[in-house]
C-alpha cells in the first residue's frame, strides 16, 4: 500500500490539537514542558472547556506557556501563581483555573503560596513540573535537586551539609486537608504520557466538584541543564529521579 493512500484525512488517528497554537515552542529539544503543554491542551479540548479555562503561567522556562495553549492566560510573579489562582477562581467559580509551575517557582520562592492555597482547599489545579534544576537561569540547584546532583551552583554535587535535602513537596502537600487529589506522574514514554493525561483530566474535573485542590507533579527532564541528550535524560530520570520521587497517586478522595 502506498503511503499516499494512508495519509488521508479519514485515516488520521493522532495529530496536534487545535488548542495548541502554531507557535514554535521555545523549549529545548526534548523538553518535558512541550509534552505536558500538549496533554493539558488535549484535556481542555476533550472536555470542551476552552471558553471556561484560565491558565496561570509562572516565572521560569514556562513563563511563555501562554504562547502555546489557546486559552486566556495570566502571567504571575515568581512563585505567586497559587495566590492569583485563588482569587481568579473565587471570583469566577464557573471557570477552570490551573497554575503551571516549575520546581523553582513552586517549591522554592512560591512555597508559601502553594501551601496555603492547598491548605485552603482552593478548587484549582496545580501542575508542578519537577526537573530538579533551574532551567531558565542556566541550570542552578533547585529545592528538588537530588543529593550528589551536579548543577551550576552545586558544581561538586549537592551536599546535604551545605545545601540541605531534596524536597518532596508533593508528599507535604498531600498531608494538607485541603487537597483532594495529589499524584506524581511522568511523561517520558507513551504509557506515562497517557497516565499523566488521565491524571490532569481528573484534576480538572475535580475543580468543578468542590472537593479541594488537585496537585499533579510531573517528574520531568531538563536535558540542557543536566547536560544530556533528551533520550539519555529520560534514562537518567528513570534511574535517578524515580527511586526518590516515586510515581503514583499519593492521595485521592
Amino acid at each position: 500500500m502506498d503511503i499516499k493512500d494512508i495519509i488521508k484525512p479519514e485515516n488520521k488517528v493522532y495529530g496536534k490539537t487545535p488548542l495548541l497554537t502554531d507557535a514554535v515552542m521555545h523549549y529545548c529539544p526534548g523538553c518535558t514542558h512541550g509534552v505536558v503543554h500538549k496533554i493539558i491542551a488535549e484535556v481542555i479540548e476533550e472536555m470542551g472547556i476552552q471558553d471556561k479555562t484560565i491558565g496561570i503561567s509562572p516565572v521560569g522556562c514556562a513563563v511563555l506557556a501562554y504562547n502555546y495553549i489557546d486559552i486566556d492566560w495570566e502571567q504571575s510573579a515568581h512563585g505567586r501563581a497559587p495566590a492569583l489562582a485563588t482569587a481568579t477562581k473565587r471570583l469566577n467559580p464557573e471557570k477552570y483555573v490551573f497554575t503551571y509551575q516549575g520546581d523553582g517557582d513552586l517549591a522554592s520562592i512560591g512555597c508559601g503560596e502553594v501551601m496555603h492555597a492547598c491548605n485552603r482547599g482552593e478548587n484549582i489545579v496545580i501542575i508542578f513540573i519537577n526537573n530538579a534544576i533551574y532551567g531558565m537561569t542556566g541550570g542552578q540547584m533547585a529545592p528538588t535537586t537530588l543529593l550528589g546532583q551536579v548543577t551550576a551552583t552545586t558544581p561538586y554535587g549537592r551536599r546535604a551539609d551545605l545545601n540541605g535535602y531534596p524536597m518532596k513537596i508533593t508528599e507535604i502537600v498531600a498531608q494538607l486537608e485541603g487537597t483532594c487529589y495529589v499524584t506524581r506522574q511522568s511523561a517520558q514514554n507513551p504509557a506515562a504520557v497517557r497516565k499523566a493525561k488521565k491524571a490532569i483530566r481528573k484534576a480538572f474535573e475535580n475543580s468543578m466538584m468542590n472537593k479541594g485542590t488537585s496537585f499533579v507533579e510531573i517528574v520531568s527532564t531538563c536535558n540542557s541543564g543536566w547536560k544530556l541528550t533528551p533520550v539519555k535524560a529520560n534514562k537518567w530520570m528513570e534511574e535517578n529521579m524515580f527511586p526518590f520521587y516515586q510515581l503514583g497517586d499519593i492521595k485521592d478522595r
Binding site: K12, P190, V193
Partner: peptide
C-alpha cells in the same frame, strides 16, 4: 501513535489503515 504521543513539539501526525 507512540511517537506523536511523546513528541514534545506536537509535530507528528499519525495515519492508520
Amino acid at each position: 501513535t507512540n511517537c506523536a504521543t511523546v513528541c514534545p513539539d506536537a509535530v507528528i501526525t499519525v495515519y492508520r489503515v
